[in-house]
């Protein structure tokens, strides 16, 4: 197989596979194929035309998205919504090397990015989106924190006996993560000053520390009182008739 590009290029490949395509009647295959093309037309419309390459597979469509992993994820998630319209899709996403095959654009594309996405889609079940580790890394690279919404979904071995670590998106996970960080921040805000107090108590004894705190509180109260009085005195009061 001849190739034109020596340097590898990387793209996020969304592989949309129609479930049990080969077992369906030809008229149904034609209908599902047309439906899938419509879904891809709608979902890829948000991307700039220079960012997506649409490829035909025997049992579905693959979309290679250039430089926008988040966009690829949106395409996959929105395409999955077509399941409710009677289009049984299995979706796999991978980020990997792609390149044009042969010297002409008509020769299509090849690459590990496509092969792994295809095998992940093959492994996936309908209405399920599975994501490879490399795509998770790519989305983390493009926007740290975005990968948090992808939970481990196990591993599988492809036909070439390569093991792939898979993830699945969970819409509630980012909120859960935010709450976890908030709880940790609150705990830190309480624990670290408390640790400071504990160090002080162990060094000086609790009575001295309490006296010191009470003294500082009185001083602070006196300062606040003094400040408020000064503030009130500075106001030019007028008498009412």
């Amino acid at each position: 197989m001849t190739t034109t590009n020596a340097a590898p290029r990387f793209a996020s490949v969304v592989f949309l596979k129609i479930q049990d395509f080969a077992r369906r009647s030809v008229s149904e295959q034609t209908r599902l194929r047309a439906q899938l093309e419509a879904v891809v037309a709608v979902t890829t419309a948000e991307l700039p035309i220079a960012s997506r390459i649409v490829l035909e597979a025997a049992d579905g469509i693959a979309v290679a998205v250039l430089g926008d992993p988040a966009g690829a994820l949106r395409i996959a998630e929105r395409s999955l919504a077509a399941n409710s319209a009677g289009l049984p899709l299995c979706v796999g996403i991978n980020h990997g090397a792609v390149q044009m095959a042969g010297g002409r654009a008509d020769d299509g594309m090849i690459g590990d990015g496509i092969a792994v996405a295809a095998s992940i889609a093959d492994f996936s079940s309908p209405s399920r989106l599975l994501i490879s580790r490399s795509f998770r890394d790519a989305i983390a690279d493009s926007g740290p924190g975005q990968e948090a919404g992808m939970l481990a979904a196990g591993t599988f071995n492809d036909a070439g006996l390569r093991t792939h670590e898979l993830f699945s998106p969970d819409a509630r996970e980012p909120a859960r993560r935010r709450r976890r960080f908030l709880a940790l921040a609150v705990a830190a805000a309480i624990a670290l000053p408390a640790a400071g107090v504990a160090v002080r108590v162990s060094a000086e004894g609790h009575q001295k520390v309490l006296d010191g705190i009470a003294g500082k509180f009185r001083q602070a109260s006196a300062r606040v009182e003094q400040y408020l009085r000064g503030l009130l005195d500075s106001v030019p009061w007028q008498k009412r008739n």
């Binding site: 960012s51 490829l55 693959a62």
Partner: peptide, 18 residues
């Protein structure tokens, strides 16, 4: 793994970019 380009979608600009 060699997939042909879809004839329903114009991918020329992206291929050029690639």
């Amino acid at each position: 793994t060699r997939l042909p380009l879809s004839r329903q979608f114009d991918s020329a600009a992206a291929l050029e970019r690639l």
